[in-house]
């Protein structure tokens, strides 16, 4: 295991930031710590880095117990949320910093350092900015410089705190792709923190979902999406419709083709793309009306209103490809029939 965390707990006053967390991350993975704000993900990252001390538990990096090692001896690369570039140094000096502060006997010669720094700057495609100051760079450029600076010390693990949090949406998209490719080339075990599930799914090879200081689920993005371990994960990852059997939805779900008899739980989560819509033929009973729709690029998101005998009006969301929706020739206010293909059941 490249990074191991054993029974870590951390309290801030009465607030429990981390509650007995254990986590193993194999060599070469790109892991996302995903969770809503205040779930403890940044605290966990900072404890792994050594920027914060856990109340209980141990941290292992490459098999070595580093719990009591200060951050400077942990051989980690840390990319801060707002980059924390040294404002008074040029881009070159920023990246060279980690190499220049080494003890004299370990320090490389200035020529070797310069060579290495330029190679890193070329890796992040910003060598042409080497004599600029951080204030003269765009957000995306600062992000890449911060990454180059962290990589300069050849860290055994790379830790990134909300690496795309402070960027424009378009820059963010590019950088996500870029980070994944970079990780593929360097293959250094990396953890990044994010509250954006889309980002986690797109970039990470493993996702760890945290909530209230506990790990809710850990797994590959596809696994987590297809087999959410609990209601929180199901709601947090992707869109979902929630049907509670206590609110008289059972009959209705049965007419929509979802058997409720042998299920273990009382709450059904249905992904929008697991709902099929058909135009209502004359004579059949239906309680569902098409209210509105939005274009999400290749998909259409359809807002349906379920009303009538089975309880109060409620919105249901469905998704389908553009052309399929066009072929249905639906208008606002049309009665439609639903068919639910799949649901996750929770207590």
């Amino acid at each position: 295991m490249s990074i191991s965390v054993n029974h870590i707990s951390k309290h801030f006053g009465a607030f429990t930031a981390l509650d007995n967390i254990s986590l193993d991350i194999p060599e070469g993975e790109l892991v996302a710590l995903l969770g809503p704000s205040g779930c403890g993900k940044t605290t966990l990252l900072r404890i792994i880095a050594g920027l914060e001390q856990a109340d209980q538990g141990d941290v292992f990096l490459k098999g070595d117990k580093v719990t009591d090692k200060p951050v400077k001896n942990r051989q980690i690369g840390f990319v801060f949320q707002h980059y924390a570039l040294f404002r008074h140094m040029t881009v070159f000096d920023n990246v060279a910093f980690g190499l220049k502060v080494k003890p004299r006997r370990e320090r490389l010669s200035n020529e070797v350092i310069a060579k290495k720094v330029h190679a890193l700057l070329e890796l992040v495609q910003l060598d042409w900015l080497h004599d600029r100051y951080p204030d003269q760079l765009s957000g995306g450029q600062r992000q890449r410089i911060a990454l180059a600076r962290a990589l300069a010390v050849e860290p055994s693990v790379l830790l990134l705190d909300e690496p795309f949090g402070a960027l424009d949406a378009s820059v963010r998209k590019d950088l996500r792709q870029w980070l994944r490719n970079l990780h593929h080339d360097l293959n250094v075990t990396s953890i990044f923190v994010t509250h954006d599930q889309e980002e986690a799914m797109e970039v990470a090879s493993q996702v760890v979902v945290l909530n209230h200081g506990r790990i809710e689920q850990q797994g590959a993005p596809g696994d987590i999406y297809d087999h959410p371990a609990n209601a929180f994960v199901s709601r947090f990852i992707g869109q979902t419709n929630v049907f509670d059997l206590d609110e008289h939805d059972a009959d209705w779900l049965q007419t929509a083709g979802l058997s409720t008899a042998q299920q273990k739980g009382k709450i059904a989560h249905v992904r929008p793309h697991d709902i099929v819509i058909e135009k209502s033929t004359a004579g059949t009973d239906t309680f569902v009306t098409l209210k509105d729709w939005q274009h999400l690029g290749s998909l259409i998101r359809i807002e349906l209103v379920k009303s009538g005998a089975s309880g109060q009006a409620a919105s249901v969301y469905a998704e389908m490809p553009n052309d399929q929706f066009r072929r249905l020739h639906l208008n606002r206010g049309d009665k439609v029939e639903l068919r639910i293909r799949h649901a996750h059941w929770f207590h």
Binding site: K72, F78, F80, L85, G98, V101, A152
Partner: peptide
């Protein structure tokens, strides 16, 4: 965070003070 960055890059507290805090 600049001080933490310096520490994460292997700087001692004295180096962080002289090279990062003082110039600012």
């Amino acid at each position: 965070a600049m001080e933490e960055a310096a520490a994460s890059l292997g700087a001692t507290r004295w180096q962080a003070f002289v090279k990062v805090i003082l110039p600012n």
